[in-house]
Structure formats: structure tokens, C-alpha cells
Amino acid sequence: MLTSRVFARGLGALIFAAAVPTALALDGPRPAASPVIATSPTEPFKSVRDAFKIGIRDYNAGDKVGAVRALEYAATQGHTMALWKLGRMYAEGDGVMHDDLKAFEYFSKIADQYADESPTSANARFVSSAFVALGGYFLEGIAGSYVKRDVNRAVDMFYYAASYYGDPDAQYGLARLYLEGIGVEKDSRQAARWLHLSAEKGHHAAQALLGNLLILGDGVPRQGARGLMWLTLAREAADPEKDAWIIELHDKAFAAASESDRQAALAYMQQYLSKNR
């Protein structure tokens, strides 16, 4: 894998290639390309920034139609946050009909135009988030579209966002690939490394997986107390409805832990919270 900005500059071509069907019959009809961005609305805006501000204002006020109109105007001018917000709206069916292909294309435009964005820039978190979203789409593919499952591209998307931008979601996603041996050779130590980077940023799912890995000593040195510490932190942040698996892992580990490990885990957790307060 490449880790430099040379890799970043190559991602534009990578995304573009993924967005063009390659198995078309030479003498057959070519499918119409799905537009990445809708046509500009007729309503004038003072500036791209003004359009984005109006879009977010309308979104927060519950006017999703007005929000999409303004955001699309800003997106046609390459506004990063407008592209990202529209991608999220289509990915989640938030105020628009759920459409993963449209979401993919909005995120692709960000990756194509802003792959070399500085990690310290205001737009960095939106760019890295777009790469994470693309990684997820390449990992599964989009049914009924030209976006096919491609685990190698998924690895590239996660790796770039995880290493260049330090994105905790990307680090978690990459760790999962190493744990399961998808697109990479199965490697618990590499998984633990990426999980630790993500866990340190407060990613509670990464904290849970890292804690469980350390408690089991599966491919890594067993560290029961430190593993219980990570699981406890994850348990505190877990949503009872969405993260039942985290609660189950914690409760099982806590019940099996010795009193000395419980006390050590508490001390580790106090150190962690003090450092990150």
C-alpha cells in the first residue's frame, strides 16, 4: 500500500474508473450515466457560501426540499461540505429518497477533487468521511448498479483515511478487515494496532473489540485488566438498543475477571480519563 500523497493523487483515477461500467457491449446501447449533481436550481444565491448556509438553515428548520435545492447549488460549485451533506442525506434517506448510488457519486466527487486535502484543514474530516463511506460501498457493492464489490478498493479507501487523516472510523473499519482477513491477510496484531489508534480517539466500538482481543489474547499478548478497561469505557458509551453486543461482551468479561483485574482496570480507566479530559 502507498502511504504518500502520490497515492492520494492516484485515487481520483481509481474512483473515476469505478464509476464507469467496464463490461458494455461494443454494439449495444450504452446506459445513461447517473448525474453526480443535479442541475443548478433557478433560485439565485449570493454566493456558494450563502447557498450552503441557507441549505443548512433550511435543513435544521425541517425544510428538506429547500435544503436540497440550496445544497445542490453549492455542490455544483464543488463545496466540500455541501457534497458531503447531500451524500449523507441520500445514504440515510434523510429528507430524500434513499439512494446509495447517488450517495456514492457525491462521495466520489469529494474523493476525486479533494484527496490531497491537508489533514489539518477545515474540510479534512468531511474528506476522510467520504473515503470511509466509499470503503463501505466497495466492501458490499451497490445492488443493481455499476458499483460492484471490490475488497481491494475498500482496503485502499479505509487505509488512506486511516493513515493520512487518522480517521477513527476508517481505523476501526481497517481493523475489522484485518480481524476477518478480508482483502488483507488475517493479522490480529495489525488489527489491534488500528483498533488502539481508533480507541484512543473515543471510538467505542473499537474500544470494545480491542478490549475483547486483549482479554482473549487472540494473536496478541493477553492483557486482562487493560482489556477490561477498554470494554468498560465502551460500555459507558454504548447505546442499549444499537450496541447490545458491546454490553454483552463487557458483562461477560466483567463476570469472569478476577478482583485484581477489576481494580487494575479501574485504575487504568481513571488514568485514561484524566489524560483525555
Rank of each mutant, 00 (worst) to 15 (best):
G136Q: 10
D99K: 04
S121P: 06
A91M: 00
R88N: 12
G136T: 05
A111D: 00
Y106F: 03
V127G: 02
S128T: 11
D99T: 06
G93E: 02
A91T: 00
Y137H: 14
K109H: 01
L83S: 13
F126G: 02
E117M: 04
L86G: 12
V132Q: 13
T120N: 04
G144S: 15
R125W: 01
E92T: 03
R125K: 07
Y137D: 10
D99L: 10
K109D: 06
A122S: 11
K102W: 08
G136P: 11
V96C: 08
A133V: 06
T120I: 03
A111R: 00
E140T: 14
E105A: 05
A122M: 05
L101M: 14
E92W: 01
E105V: 00
P119S: 13
D112G: 05
R88E: 13
G135V: 13
S108G: 15
Q113E: 14
L86W: 07
G144Y: 14
D116W: 05
F138Y: 14
G87E: 08
K102C: 12
E140Q: 09
E117A: 09
D116G: 07
V127S: 01
V96G: 10
M89R: 02
E105Q: 09
M89E: 01
K102T: 11
A115D: 02
I142A: 06
F104N: 07
I110R: 01
V132M: 14
S121L: 04
R88G: 05
P119N: 13
Y90T: 10
A115T: 01
W84F: 15
D99Q: 05
S129C: 11
L139R: 11
F104S: 04
G95I: 03
G144A: 15
E105F: 11
K102A: 12
V132A: 14
E140W: 04
I110M: 03
M81I: 04
G135F: 12
A133T: 10
F138G: 06
L83V: 13
G136D: 12
E117V: 03
Y114C: 10
L101G: 12
Q113R: 10
H98E: 13
Y106M: 02
G95T: 03
E140V: 04
A115V: 03
G93K: 00
S118I: 08
L134P: 10
Y106L: 00
S118A: 15
K85W: 01
S121T: 07
G141S: 14
D116F: 07
G87K: 07
S118R: 13
E140C: 01
D100M: 00
H98S: 06
T120P: 00
G135E: 10
I110D: 03
D116N: 09
G144W: 13
M89T: 02
R88H: 06
V132D: 14
E117C: 02
W84N: 15
A133Q: 15
F138E: 05
E92L: 11
E140P: 03
A133E: 15
L86K: 09
G141F: 14
E105Y: 12
